[in-house]
Nucleic acid binder design. Structure first.
Length: 252
DNA sequence: ACCGGGATTTAACTTACATCA
DNA sequence: GTTGATGTAAGTTAAATCCCG
């Protein structure tokens, strides 16, 4: 399908040199002094107008039809083979640039992900430290009030034994003394009772403990302590409930 | 300002392979 | 199925050009 005047790409060098089809292609066989002269005339490189036309054509189609190639070559005063070679080289350069662009985009995406990963890692570390602190406080308080209750229980047992020895009736469980004056158990009572049962503590211990926990809690709930959680971080995602299972493991 | 040399750009070439008549 | 013409991608060459010390 070669057009008239075009040479096969696989032609031998000897054949090509014999087919000296333009001043620029003949250029390589000239002496250095003549090369210099031709160079001064800007003959080797295509002119700006030629390049502009070639670029414009390349934007519309990266592979030229033979007829368009002939037409373009005629318009630019080049050999069709020169146009063909220019398009070959242009495709190669374009592909190389495209690879660079793709690489740059991929690298940018990777850097963003790596940055997010590092940020989340720091948040996790910070949360683990806070969790450990809370755990320590809980252990300390639980131990403290368990002892207090044991002492109180011992005192009551001692009083009962004393009364029994003195022939007085043993103290019965008095609802009114523990849960309001009318003997009716209020919601607060139930609430405290549940908390006490759950934690194994009495009311005072529960209230005291809750104050401590709330104080610790405020450091978690105040925005200034959130760090980068707001910045497109985990707070913007609906957490999977199982993600927080370890929090409740702590309480059980 | 000039120079030398390494880096980059670019036109042209070579080779290997694919397609089609 | 084979062959020759033609086209392309990928890699190379050589000269021009750029850049920097």
């Amino acid at each position: 399908m070669f057009d008239a005047g075009e040479f096969s790409p696989s032609s031998s060098a000897a054949a090509l040199s014999a087919e000296c089809f333009s001043s620029s292609s003949c250029f390589s066989s000239l002496s250095s002094s003549k090369k210099k002269k031709i160079n001064n005339n800007n003959a080797r490189r295509f002119s700006d107008e030629q390049i502009k036309s070639l670029e414009t054509m390349f934007e519309t189609e990266t592979k030229l039809e033979p007829r368009k190639k002939l037409q373009l070559a005629r318009e630019l005063g080049l050999q069709p083979r020169q146009v063909a070679i220019w398009f070959q080289n242009k495709r190669a350069r374009w592909k190389s640039k495209q690879l660079e662009r793709d690489y740059s985009i991929l690298k940018s995406n990777y850097d963003n992900l790596a940055s997010q990963y590092e940020s989340l890692k720091k948040e996790k570390q910070s949360l683990l430290i806070q969790l450990q602190k809370l755990n320590d406080v809980m252990q300390k308080e639980r131990g403290k009030y368990c002892c207090k209750q044991e002492i109180e229980l011992d005192n009551r047992c001692a009083a009962i034994k004393k009364n029994e020895m003195e022939g007085m009736p043993s103290l019965s469980f008095d609802l009114s003394s523990q849960h309001g004056t009318n003997g009716v158990i209020s919601d607060d009572d139930i609430d405290s009772s549940i908390k006490a049962d759950y934690l194994g503590l009495d009311d005072d211990a529960v209230h005291h403990l809750l104050k401590i926990v709330e104080a610790e809690d405020s450091s978690l709930t105040s925005p200034e302590n959130w760090g980068s959680l707001n910045d497109d971080g985990i707070l913007n995602h609906q957490p999977n409930s199982s993600s927080y299972d370890h929090w409740w493991d702590f309480w059980s």
